[in-house]
Amino acid sequence: MSILLRAEDISISFGGIKAVSGVSLAVERGEILSIIGPNGAGKTTFFNIISGLYLPSQGRVMLKDEDVTGRPPEMLARRGLCRTFQNLQVFFGMSALENVMAGRHRHERTSALSHILGLRCVGRENARSAAEAREKLDFVGLADLAERSAGGLSYGALKRLEIARALASEPELLLLDEPAAGCNGTETAQISEIIRKIAGAGITVVLVEHDMKLVMRISDRILVLEQGRSLCLGPPSVVRGDSRVQAAYLGQHGTREAHVA
């Protein structure tokens, strides 16, 4: 197995508080890796570092054996890393289809001058992007809502729309920040199915998620964070049985949920 992303000894502090301290992680190609932990454990902060939004005060991020620490997200996107957000970051003024078409940006080759002049090649490129975008919408089960304005979609649909947009950029590594947060049971089941399909298509997935059933069911490995530190890393069966994890995070209810899954 080759390593797609390697985070080495990552630390960052905000106003004297260490949000993440000394976390290392090697993501293998093709796996589904979940990051769990109590609120404030530094999951999203860690995510923001590996996706280029924050600069770590210590440590490096290697993507495909290249040091990408502190590289802006748009450059990481060109190297095959894309992500979604915990709080929706949808382009609300655009249709669902256009949202996903925007995800095709890095594959669009025509020049800005040709865009202003409305040359034939732009029309062909638009058609290509639209076709690819429809495919992604179909992949997440939103094909029927393609022409609808994103502002009029339900919360669950918007969560899937964000995934479709990220997929449109054709990433090798997809980071999902709480893909099922705020979703009901049916929606969570849909999301879980989509994540499986994504992994089935050969895309490596790293996700932050609170829904223990979802995490235990789909993950190949789980990283547990607590107070910015890495507590435990291993397959679900190991994490489930780890007494430190039970004490720090799962608690009684969580342990039961984890075993049910």
Binding site: E74, A102, I116, L117, N126
Partner: peptide, 25 residues
């Protein structure tokens, strides 16, 4: 022409969410 081109979509994306625009490249 510009509005309905890749650049137009990129600009509208920036208007709606800069961070989301950046992560798709």
């Amino acid at each position: 022409n510009l509005t309905f081109s890749p650049t137009g979509r990129a600009l509208r994306a920036i208007r709606d969410s800069e961070v989301a625009a950046r992560v798709v490249g």
